[in-house]
Every structure is written in structure tokens, then in C-alpha cells.
Nucleic acid binder design. Structure first.
Lengths: 205, 205
DNA sequence: TGCGGTAGATTGACTGGTCAATCAACCACC
DNA sequence: GGTGGTTGATTGACCAGTCAATCTACCGCA
């Protein structure tokens, strides 16, 4: 070989995963053929099946890899000595930063897993719910400490929080709202600010 | 025929649509075969293609039929002389009532269209955005009149509002949160209440 | 140093099954 | 006998997953 460099096995595996991210992001899971992934990765068709049991297994690996980061970050944030609002802001920021850092992967995860209740969403429900659950606990703590109003169901807020943030990411993904660096900076704070304080003005007249 | 009753043509068409709702709700769009729809409707396979150009056309008809009701209701609500909060509550209530009235159809619309950004969601983006847009306008009006805080981007709230409500419906659809009659009654009001007033307590000490 | 041997990586042609859509025939009523 | 509704077998395309063959790096041994 000209350069004498041989790609280590692990790198081919990684190359397949990275190629899958790009192709899934571009065409969606259902419209991508396993051949597309192999082509994009520059490997033979069969090699995908050498490293992964199935096309589905590729997707699952991509999801689990990233989602466990979110879960770990959420847990860490929950344990820290912060006000509820700051914890929520931390989670929002982590998700948005994930998107800034790797928009294609986040697009795939949100579009194909988190919001795909019929396919991967069903398979990974437990992990997805674990993320909601951290938010619920933060809210419940806030209620216990008298910072948050007691009438709102914490589980309900957990889902709401993720529903809102995912919708926001969807907006970026599909160009419905501007995706500038400035927007990213503001968006996370704005979600939490609005969630905590509401839309209405509360003037002390 | 024993009962001498002949089903009118239009009824067969309707029977196919109704059957499609049930099958799509049960198995999801991608896992339902056209044969499943025909079987469920009690008609021959080919008749589906007599009334509809394709499997996709069946789904499109289901979506458009219902979504236009939502659009009309939203527009009507927008025109009425109500406070912004009441208009938002009206929309939330309409969506939730739609779900109570026909949970299977709403499940299909949300799971397969509204949140399926890669398939039908892309096709029907304009109509979907029209719904978000009404909310945005309500918020913008509220800001103009000084009822709502000015810092929040109305477009952003439009997406948020739907993201939250759809997540809530998803929760009911998949049994993540209790779907009792009482819950339905409270849920719509709670979304709007929380959105407008925020989670935090605003005591006038 | 050179040489069989082996395990794991890599290749891509092929198979088996699935399913949307077509179509030619059939039926019932006017 | 004609029109519009109705039937279901057939077709043709598509594609996930299999598999037998090939390649390459490296090891033990003389």
C-alpha cells in the first residue's frame, strides 16, 4: 500500500457508525438501504453484518451511545447543589450543546427514536422515560421546597419539558426557525425562563 | 342478500378510511399492508385502489380531513374577542377534545404525521405550520397589548405549545400518564395555566 | 530468515420473502 | 347491454440478511 497505513478493525466499525449517522440524517432510517451505509463508509456490504447483527442494531448503538451521555449528565446535575431552575437550565443546555456539537446525530436520535413512538421509540421507552424522570424529580423537589407551585403534576412537566425542547430542535433541524450561534445561546435559557416564569408579565404595580 | 340492504358506494369508501384509522393506530403506517386495510374494512384488496390512488393517499386523506377542522377552529378562535390566554386555552381544549372523541385517529395523526418529520411530516409541513402560526399570532397580539412579556419569540412559543400538547397526547396514547376523564378536563387548562404563569410561585408577599 | 498455518477481516453475488400496485374478469342494478 | 362497483390473482421491484470465497497480518517453528 502506498502509505503503508492500515486501518485498524475498530476504525472500520466506527466508520460504519459515522456513515450511518450521515445517511440516516440525510434520508431517514426507513429509506436508507444497508448498501447506502456501506457505500458511505467505503466498505463492502457484508462488513456491516460482520460488525452489527442487523440494520436495527446499528441504529440502536447510535442511540444508546448518545443517550447514556444525556442520562449521566442529567443524574450528575440532579445530585449537585443547585436551584431547580438551574438544574433544568443545565439539562436544556446539555441537549442544545449536543445538537451544536453533532447536529446530524441529534437529528437522527430525535426524529428516528425519541419521537418515533411506533418503531425505536417503543423499543427504547425505558431509557427515554429515565430522562423525563430526572426532570420530574427536579420539579417535585422544587415543589417540596416551595419554589414551584404545587398544582402541576411533575410527570406532566417532565414530558412537557422534553416535548418543548425536542420541538425546538426539530425547528432547527428542518429550518423552521433560525439556527444561528446566538439563537443556540439564548434558546436554552429562554425555555427554562419561560417555563419557570410564564409568558405573562408579573409586575409589582 | 339476506337483509336486502346494499351498501352505497360512498359508504365503502368511508369504511376503508375508518378501517385504515384502526389499522394504522394498531400497527403504525409502515407495518400495515394494504391487505390489512382491506381485510379490516371487509372489502377486496383491489377496491382500496378503486377509491384511492395509493396507500399514502389514504393516510393523506385522514390527515387533511381532521387537520382542516383544527385549522378552522383555530382561525375562528383567533377572530373572537377573547383574551390571549383564553384563545390558547380554546385551542388546547379543541385538540384534547379531538383526542377524547377519536383517540385512534388522533394517535395516527400525531404519530405518523405531525411528529414524523421524515415522512408525512415533511409532506404536510405547510399545513402543520399554519397551526403553529395561529398560536404565534395570538402570542404576538398578547405582547403588543402588553399582556405577555416581550422577550419571548412568538414563533418559538408556537412550536413549544404544540410540542407540549403533542407530548401530552403521546403520553395518553402510550399509557405513560393516566387518561381518565378527569385528567382530560384538567390537562388543557393546566398546559395554558403553566405556560402563562410559569412553574414558580409569584406571591405578592 | 523463511515458511506453512490460522484466525479474523473483508468482499459482493445471491436468496428468499415481502408488498404496493395493476388488471382482466365478474357482478348488480338500471 | 351498459355503467360503475367489486374481486383477488399476478406482477415486478425492492432489499435485508446469508455465505462461500478471498485477503492479510501475524504466529510458531526449523
Amino acid at each position: 500500500m502506498a502509505d503503508g497505513v492500515r486501518v485498524a478493525p475498530a476504525d472500520k466499525r466506527r466508520a460504519i457508525l459515522d456513515a450511518a449517522i450521515r445517511v440516516f440524517a440525510r434520508q431517514g432510517y426507513h429509506s436508507t438501504r444497508v448498501a447506502d451505509i456501506a457505500d458511505e463508509a467505503g466498505v463492502a456490504y457484508g462488513l456491516v453484518y460482520h460488525y452489527f447483527r442487523s440494520k436495527e442494531a446499528v441504529m440502536t448503538e447510535l442511540f444508546t451511545e448518545r443517550w447514556s451521555l444525556l442520562l449521566d449528565a442529567s443524574d450528575a446535575l440532579y445530585e449537585r447543589d443547585l436551584r431547580p431552575r438551574e438544574k433544568l437550565a443545565g439539562i436544556a443546555r446539555f441537549i442544545i450543546d449536543s445538537y451544536r456539537h453533532d447536529p446530524e446525530l441529534m437529528k437522527v436520535i430525535i426524529v428516528e427514536v425519541t419521537r418515533a413512538a411506533n418503531s425505536f421509540g417503543a423499543t427504547h421507552l425505558p431509557e427515554i422515560r429515565r430522562a423525563y424522570d430526572v426532570v420530574s424529580r427536579i420539579v417535585a423537589d422544587g415543589q417540596r421546597d416551595g419554589v414551584f407551585r404545587a398544582e402541576v403534576d411533575p410527570d406532566f412537566v417532565g414530558m412537557w419539558f422534553y416535548g418543548a425542547i425536542e420541538q425546538l430542535l426539530s425547528g432547527w433541524v428542518f429550518g423552521l426557525i433560525p439556527a444561528t450561534d446566538e439563537e443556540f445561546e439564548r434558546a436554552g435559557a429562554m425555555v427554562v425562563e419561560t417555563l419557570c416564569c410564564g409568558l405573562e408579565r408579573h409586575d409589582r404595580a
